[in-house]
Design a protein around this nucleic acid. Structure first.
Lengths: 340, 340
DNA sequence: TTGAAAGCGATACCAG
DNA sequence: CTGGTATCGCTTTCAA
């Protein structure tokens, strides 16, 4: 078994209190006593137990990160940013993939509480805001990242999704598209809803419609669902000349569908994605997409979270970052003579 | 503050022992008493503290996963598989990105011990096997995944990297390439070394050389370094007609380099990657690569780890899975008249 | 300065 | 069945 504080104390012929002091650099101890103790700690390879320390009220120095799917490059990037920033402050990260399932989210939420994490960063949608009541009442600091829970008093770091959707719409409109389809995420994903709202808004302003039957929602397997839905849209009566996909994974599904149907992108079909993950830069053709500053978002989320740890939640900030249109080669003016 | 076992006991008018029993479903308690207690627990929204439980010797139900970089899609996929399998058994995951830095690895190793994780899955290279001595002596179960530590007595789940490298070489040889460059990872990444060893072996058997100056190692930023090195190789005296990249990220760097130099792939340059991440399927052109069964690997690693938790490490297994060549469109017969 | 002792929340053994 | 109690490893008064 590992050496405990008692072992060290005994070996050094002092009290455990003394050992505790040198470990935490608190209190007053004579130089020699301190050095002596440090020597013993080294010899015994003593490593204080975080568990025991946490039980006495100290923090656990652990943060929870809830995302839909860590294997989605966007969230993997967010996770990396969060991990790095947390690490700088001495925190480690427990990662949970919810697949946008309320059931899993609920389970993880309470699990993380039982594990006494010092805070949670939530990047996954939730249907009922009530799910967060418990953690909030118990004052577990929370910050939402890349997702929103309106009318809920939580710190939030998001990109302006509405604006992102608008950007996409304007770009497509500028190119001359009018019959456009949308690949959405699961309905309880706030960011997806906002993006579409912004998208539709611009279309409407231009006197165009975005009929409900041309926006289709996907489930957990984004690429596969995206492909399936794109296939449907592309084979429908009035084939859209452009597709707005609420994230890069869906866009990839669309790309695959186009390839399968031998619909050329961007000549016959324009595709715009969202997130600007590494994927967007390597696809064939490279994806026009809306960029989110993932690194900054992760960093800010952690800072906000740790800020709450120190002082009472001053104000419930809502930090809105600017999205950016990154034009690559998956978009172009619509062909005048669509085939099929 | 959250309700404790004492609160429940008091409210229910029983002893804490009784409450503990119903929580853990152990011991004998009369139906009515049990129901009564459960009611109180519900009313108080009682959630047992894992921390306290862990202190008394119970497990923490937390696993550590050490990888070079969680934002690398390969490791993100591994992480997802590990998380899922762990979740099934009630474990959550602490993820640590080491960037292949011994310093970070060491820090995380000891951190995870202090946090009393029940086991660690290591998917990152380490230079000195001694780094694992301490955890091992303290009997923290460990399993290596996708990386090896030869002559160290640890359970291991890997793909046959040597064979993977051979596969790549044979493929390139079959196409008729003879002047081939290699993009390697950091030298202390065992998998990368093995892949190159296998690659070289096949070349040698065919009477070909793989001069050291044509294999270049990259650092942490795989894509950027890969591009830089590919650029160098492609601009060298004797430009290779093919590049074997030790992972898909490096291959993407190579792809970018080729594009920048206007070297056509695969007409003028063949590229083969490794890992078969989602990236490989979307690049332009789609990447010929060596596939690893990430999902299976993650699952097996967890099973092995939890296996060690129950019974003493029976035998130090080394599970070797088969890699698979996935031929897409980044490889072809070398052009007879290489331009430049 | 230094140390004895009281928790923190839960488990488990042992009487009753 | 049920409850008292020691214990886990560490932090933190509070005296000495």
């Amino acid at each position: 078994m590992r050496a405990t504080i008692y072992d060290v104390a005994r070996e050094a012929g002092v009290s455990i209190a003394a050992v505790s002091q040198v470990v935490n650099g608190k209190g007053k101890i004579s130089e020699e006593r301190r050095n002596e103790i440090m020597l013993v700690m080294e010899r015994l390879q003593y490593q204080p137990s975080h568990i025991a320390a946490a039980l006495t009220g100290k923090k656990t120095y652990t943060l929870g990160l809830l995302v839909p799917d860590i294997s989605n490059p966007f969230f993997a990037e967010i996770a990396r940013a969060v991990e790095d920033q947390g690490d700088h402050q001495g925190y480690s990260l427990v990662i949970c993939s919810t697949d946008n399932k309320d059931e899993k989210l609920e389970r993880y939420l309470s699990l993380l509480q039982q594990k006494s994490v010092d805070g949670m960063i939530i990047g996954t949608g939730l249907k009922k805001k009530e799910m967060l009541n418990q953690p909030i009442e118990r004052s577990v600091p929370i910050v939402m990242i890349a997702r929103e829970m309106p009318d809920l008093d939580v710190q939030t770091v998001v990109v302006d999704d509405f604006e992102g959707g608008s950007l996409a719409a304007r770009h497509l409109l500028d190119l001359g598209h009018s019959r456009i389809g949308v690949l959405a995420e699961h309905p309880n994903v706030s960011s997806s809803r906002e993006r579409i709202r912004g998208f539709r808004q611009i279309l409407t302003e231009s006197g165009l419609e975005l009929p409900e039957h041309r926006v289709v929602a996907s489930g957990a397997d984004l690429v596969k669902d995206g492909k399936r839905h794109a296939l449907e849209l592309l084979q429908s009566e009035e084939r859209p000349t452009a597709l707005f996909c609420c994230n890069d994974l869906l866009a990839i599904g669309a790309l695959q569908a186009a390839k399968e149907l031998e619909v050329r992108v961007p000549a016959e079909l324009s595709i715009v994605g969202f997130d600007n993950t590494i994927l967007a830069s390597v696809t064939d053709p490279p994806l026009t997409t809306i960029a989110q500053p993932t690194e900054l978002m992760g960093k800010m989320a952690v800072d906000l979270l740790l800020g709450q740890l120190k002082k009472k939640p001053d104000i419930k900030q809502r930090t809105v970052l600017r999205p950016e249109l990154v034009i690559r080669h998956s978009t172009a003016v619509p062909s005048t003579t669509p085939t099929i």
